[in-house]
Design a protein around this nucleic acid. Structure first.
Length: 823
DNA sequence: CTCTCCCT
């Protein structure tokens, strides 16, 4: 085998690893970074302890580990080991462990000092999965605080150097060439009518693939966004290709054995078409591939903060992914890539994919960091987790009973973390463990296994039927159920505990308990959102459901796919922590009376209520205040005086009085109604009496008598012009104050008048004798000198009886005509 | 026409 490009930089790399603690290895596909590099590290014996190499996918981890072991003439589990979910192949001899991302996070959590580990390699770091970002943050924390001898290496094909270097300024950067045989390209834009989602999309893809197979030699790798597209394309292809062409689907939910079949070499004389998701985009060599067909699409999980639901979206891939996908064609010999989009489209793609941590549900991440005992601002991030997502995730963990308000784990939270599954399911399993009912525990295991990997294409609304079906399956779900059962110390049964099932589901999805809005299948979820059953759904009419699977649609109610009927009183018996008591008072506009009731609530749902017979005055005040809050400040009876005080106080805050005043913005006042408005409502019992409130007095009391006096002095309501008349100053928040006055009345004023101890200049709106606007100026002196001449000429013509002096700055002000003046 | 990937 000829020398790989990475060999030429190995010396730099060995030097880097001796001198620095952090390394960045940038190498395009074919350099040998995931294969030659780790072997070279083992051969050189540069690091004393174990090397961990992180791969983003199980399939990739398994293949690389197998390949590395075979290169050393060993079998897996000797020097080279593997650790992924559900499979651990290591021994005392093991010096290089290939692991997946979640496994690394677990290892760090279980042993923060990472005893015996000397080097951690993050392969394919450019993919920026949330797991890789989180485990890097933890590993860097370990390096800084506990293990200054630990080395970290980030390997990537395409990565924003600047961002990474500013995160790790002292890292050694090693750049390698790639090696790739030449690849030729064809572009074929697909019209919207035949594009993704249209019924003819897969037949178009299949036609192009079979044409390519006729025209070219070798096997093909086709990148499609998801399982549905893969299955339909496979069906279409069967009728179009000859029998010596194998059609091999490849995606994550297939069993390891099926996946292995898809990437294994063909029998001699045969060729194959691999239909893959982006599981095959990196770290995977498939025998005999020299043709690539790229749909240019992928599915990404996008968390909707409003509904708390993660939805899969089909989106255009990034340019870096398009390059990776095409590169698969040139691994063995010169290849060809057909892109099912235009070349201009390729140029317009975003350069690199958006990091998952920015768009994902952070519930698992918050739990992980709480277990670690750090807040996000104490760790290093390439992209910080967004604060709003973080707060929402924390709130969910609190609701699940895993986190305390102070962000530390509860006892149940610590127990849940040990289950190694997503927080909702972990909370449910921890609850099952405590409830000490074997049937409930078995059901909990099946529910967790189902939720991790639901049955695809099983159109069945009843959650119980899903679990029964899952319990009859062999494979991933059964293995996971057994794993959970071991943790709970229970045995698995395919009889579901029907009493417990809805309770368990409510523990996992407390935000998705649904209350009927009527008899027509419309429901309200405890998170406040609307959801509905399909028409003629057998559960229509049930008072309460717990929704295990639903889909948000762009507009209107979410669609409920899988649910269980719930007896709300049973949930109250088993998990009263989910419920809160609440005294609700409000003014009902339609009925024209106070509503006062004691409510039992689950999230936003009112599950029970009793009227409070004769509410006392403070309750009535509360009700009216909540009506004010709903209707806004403008619903109060403002008059000129109170409105003027409020506006002037707000202006004063901007100009001269500063932050001593309480928050008197609309939001600030609405938030403090109890403080400033309530004391003036002692005898108000109906909305119609609200107009009796002296808002001026209330505001004056709120901002303080001294401040109110200052405001009157600094921001007077009127301004006295030289004639002695006072005119109202127009105040508006965010704008300069305006004084409208007839021009003649300010003769004798040399410069623009000011207020607020001279800090603010009045804008003069100068009017004609007939009160028509003539000029607006903030600089009266300048006006007299300049533009006044023109105005004077015009005014002399139109109002000859009035005085229009040549030197207005020093003339006597007047509101009268010449005749009066002469007398 | 409901579903990428991953977790002691």
């Amino acid at each position: 085998m000829s020398q790989l490009p990475i060999e030429t930089v190995l010396d730099d790399l060995f030097q880097g690893i001796t001198k620095r603690d952090r390394l960045i290895v940038k190498a395009p596909p074919g350099a040998g970074k995931s294969t030659r590099l780790p072997l070279a590290l083992l051969e050189r014996d540069l690091v004393a302890g174990k090397i961990l190499m992180l791969e983003p996918r199980r399939l990739a981890a398994r293949n690389i580990a197998n390949y590395l072991a075979s290169q050393r003439g060993e079998s897996l589990g000797e020097t080279v080991g593997l650790r992924v979910r559900g499979e651990s192949r290591t021994s005392k001899q093991t010096r290089l462990e290939v692991v997946t991302e979640g496994v690394l996070t677990r290892m760090v959590q279980d042993d923060p000092e990472l005893d015996g580990v000397s080097l951690i390699i993050f392969d394919e770091f450019h993919e920026r999965s949330i797991q890789a970002d989180v485990s890097l943050a933890l590993v860097l924390d370990v390096q800084q605080g506990l293990r200054d001898d630990l080395k970290v290496m980030l390997m990537s094909a395409t990565l924003d150097d600047d961002a990474l270097l500013s995160l790790l300024p002292d890292a050694a950067v090693i750049t390698s060439e790639g090696r790739c045989h030449p690849v030729t390209y064809d572009y074929m834009p697909v019209s919207r009518q035949r594009g993704i989602g249209s019924p003819s999309y897969e037949s178009l893809v299949a036609a192009e693939v079979s044409k390519l197979m006729l025209a070219q030699s070798g096997s093909a790798l086709v990148f499609l966004p998801g399982v549905a597209e893969i299955k339909r394309t496979a069906d279409e292809l069967k009728t179009r290709v000859s029998e010596d062409v194998l059609i091999c689907p490849l995606y994550g939910q297939l069993s390891p054995k099926e996946q292995q079949q898809a990437i294994a070499p063909c029998e001699s004389g045969k060729r194959k078409i691999v239909l893959a998701t982006n599981i095959a985009e990196t770290s995977l060599t498939i025998e005999g591939i020299r043709l690539v067909v790229d749909s240019g699409l992928e599915r990404v999980a996008r968390f909707n903060r409003k509904t708390g639901i993660t939805r899969l979206e089909t989106v255009q891939i990034a340019r870096s992914s398009a390059i990776q996908r095409a590169g698969r064609a040139g691994r063995i010999e010169a290849g060809h890539c057909l892109r099912l989009y235009g070349e201009d489209n390729f140029q317009r793609m975003r350069a690199v994919p958006e990091p998952e941590i920015v768009t994902s549900d952070l519930t698992s991440t918050v739990l992980e960091l709480a277990q670690w005992g750090a807040t996000p601002d104490e760790l290093l991030w390439l992209d910080s987790p967004p604060e709003l997502h973080w707060t929402q995730a924390s709130a969910l963990l609190v609701q699940l009973g895993l986190l305390q308000e102070n962000q530390t784990l509860t006892a149940m939270g610590r127990a849940a973390h040990a289950f190694g599954t997503e927080p909702r399911l972990a909370a449910m399993l921890a609850f099952a463990k405590k409830c000490d009912d074997k049937a409930a525990q078995s059901t909990a295991c099946w529910l967790a296994a189902w939720s991790e990997e639901p049955l695809r294409g099983f159109r069945e609304p009843d959650l119980a039927k899903h679990l029964v079906a899952v319990s009859r399956q062999k494979g991933n779900q059964a293995r996971r159920a057994r794993y959970f059962a071991e943790k709970l110390g229970c045995s698995l049964s395919s009889d579901m505990a029907f009493y417990w099932l809805p309770v368990l589901a409510s523990v996992a999805w407390p935000d998705r308990v649904a209350k009927a809005r009527g008899n027509d299948g419309r429901y309200q979820l405890s998170n406040g959102h609307g959801a509905e059953l399909e028409p003629d759904h057998p559960m229509t009419g049930a008072d309460y459901l717990v929704v295990a699977d639903l889909m948000t649609v762009k507009q209107g109610n979410s669609k409920i796919f899988v649910a269980a009927e719930l007896d709300i009183s049973e949930l109250e018996n088993e998990r009263s922590e989910l419920f809160t008591d609440f005294e609700w008072v409000d003014w009902d506009d339609n009925k024209g009376r106070i509503i006062a009731e004691r409510q039992r609530r689950l999230g936003r749902l009112v599950v029970d209520k009793t009227a409070i017979a004769s509410p006392d005055q403070s309750r009535i005040t509360d009700a009216l205040l909540s009506a004010v809050r709903r209707k806004g400040l403008s619903s109060l009876s403002w008059n000129t005086k109170s409105e003027s005080l409020l506006t002037r106080a707000r202006c004063a805050m901007n100009w001269c009085i500063g932050p001593d005043l309480p928050d008197i913005s609309d939001d600030g006042l609405l938030a403090q109604l109890e403080t400033w408005l309530a004391p003036f409502m002692v005898s108000v019992t109906r909305w119609s009496q609200m107009n009796k409130i002296d808002l001026n007095a209330a505001l004056e009391a709120y901002i303080g008598w001294e401040a109110a006096k200052d405001i009157d002095r600094l921001l007077p309501e009127t301004y006295k012009v030289p004639t002695g008349s006072g005119y109202r100053i127009r105040y508006q928040v965010g704008q300069k104050p305006v004084l409208a006055v007839r021009m003649q009345e300010v003769f004798g004023e040399a410069t623009s008048p000011t207020i607020a101890d001279g800090k603010v200049t009045l804008v003069l709106e100068l009017l004609s004798p007939a009160q028509r606007p003539l000029q607006i100026t903030q600089d009266l002196a300048g006006f007299w000198q300049g533009a006044y001449r023109e105005v004077q000429k015009e005014m002399k013509g139109r109002y000859p009886k009035h005085v229009w002096p040549d030197d207005p700055a020093n003339h006597v002000a007047t509101n009268k005509t010449k005749r009066h003046f002469k007398q």
